[in-house]
Design a protein around this nucleic acid. Structure first.
Lengths: 245, 245
DNA sequence: GCAAAAGTGTTAATGCTACACCCATGT
DNA sequence: ACATGGGTGTAGCATTAACACTTTTGC
């Protein structure tokens, strides 16, 4: 029997299958703090709690494609830095039925974050309360702009915690920071992003030199405008795609 | 309507669902080289090629539990360091039907690796051919002890590549190296593991000091036996579980 | 001129590399 | 005694942290 003949007669069987979903952690740094976009659940289960945007994976759709589809449908976004984070598969993580969820994070510059909020008013900006320092990747709390706690649905607090941990880990060797900044940015803005994610204050001269020495930055000669003091030079990330993993 | 009433009446629906599987990368360092255990496929598809041990996730079984079940069933192993690696979800990754596969890796000391091979003779030891240096986490080739190429089934070469990359990344901050060594080990053995995974030669005195300074090692006072030269001291990893992620 | 933040130079501390050397064991 | 690898000390080099300082803009 050839492989083609085998496939012809293959019966996928009837064992019960879990549903497969993707959940999207739309992240940015807003006002010097890490933030994510959440949806208020208006149905059971976890009615009234806050959840990550997500959706089921179609049978003819790859996981990555599903993540991008959700990005477009829920946040009206096309291009963004998207990366798979972790797959959550506890049996009772969703009380309705068995759902295995592949968590992705998408990194957005603050401006496009705000635009997404405008274009999709059902989304809410949540500031992430990360237990600095020495955090372990455990659950992270969310808080509204007013400071109110936003109780999270399902295992989404764990997802946010893991996303923060991954981000921290990749910060200094993989251009993720640039995905959180506009095309042109100042070194100060880059430092702010690093400080927000790491949760520590960094030394300015050391940080500048470290960044410039990586060779990933390209000076534009342009200057920031609008400040009432010396305008900072604008840089651009050299065209090396932030490599996966 | 309360949440309980909602769940009572919930209909999981009839949308077509992918199968969910786990694949297990059983890794060790054997003879100074990274190695994994593979199974020869004796059925279509990919008949005659080499595959990672795996299995479908049952409807009432968490992903982690499925990985441990496969570990026990295919390798007659109970305790090992097991960690989720990545989830592979391309539509056509398996020609039979849509299968989303969650890859895990399990790290074993060389001795238990050999024991697994004995207890499960259908397994084959494969040496991993990693393109040093500057590898990107791309596909990795496997080779038998005799040096013959072992063509891999499905996307398992990508899984092996990603496992090597992850291992490399976690080596210096997360006790993964200790999971590849027996309970008691010499500093030379620890260095051999590091060199095998990183693919570079390390400086002996610097490596010793770096390891001792971490505080993760505990001197036992015991000595290695059987060598025809000065016996090395045996160390133990201090009881801090190798932290996840 | 003053305030505020950009940007630069200089020094100190730290960690790593390389090499040399001594130590302990079996033959 | 010697060969072999374990183990330690020291000096040189590179990277990084910390501080002080100069520069440039708006008011």
């Amino acid at each position: 029997m050839t492989e083609a003949e085998f496939l012809e007669g293959y019966d996928p069987g009837v064992h019960e299958r879990p549903s497969v979903a993707v959940d999207l952690i739309l992240m940015s740094v807003v006002g010097g703090r890490p933030a994510a976009l959440l949806l208020r659940r208006d149905e059971h289960p976890h009615l009234g709690r806050w959840a990550l945007p997500g959706g089921f994976v179609a049978i003819d759709e790859s996981l990555d494609a599903a993540a991008r589809r959700v990005l477009g449908a829920k946040a009206r976004m096309t291009d963004a830095y998207v990366e798979q984070l972790y797959t959550f598969g506890a049996v009772d993580r969703d009380p309705r039925t068995r759902i295995v969820s592949v968590a992705y994070f998408a990194l957005l510059p603050a401006a496009r974050f705000a635009a997404a909020l405008k274009g999709a008013p059902e989304l809410t900006l949540a500031e992430l309360v990360v237990p600095w320092p020495g955090e372990t990747g455990g659950p992270v709390e969310a808080r509204s702009a007013d400071g109110d706690a936003l109780p999270l649905a399902f295992d989404h607090a764990e997802m946010l915690g893991l996303a923060m941990l991954r981000l921290r880990g990749k910060l200094d060797y993989s251009g993720v920071a640039f995905a959180l900044l506009p095309e042109l940015f100042t070194l100060r803005a880059l430092q702010d992003v690093h400080e927000a994610i790491l949760g520590v204050r960094l030394n300015k001269p050391a940080f500048r030199r470290r960044m410039l020495d990586t060779g990933r930055l390209e000076a534009t000669g342009e200057r920031e405008t609008g400040a009432s003091f010396r305008p900072a030079e604008l840089f651009r990330c050299r065209k090396t795609m932030p490599e996966q993993e």
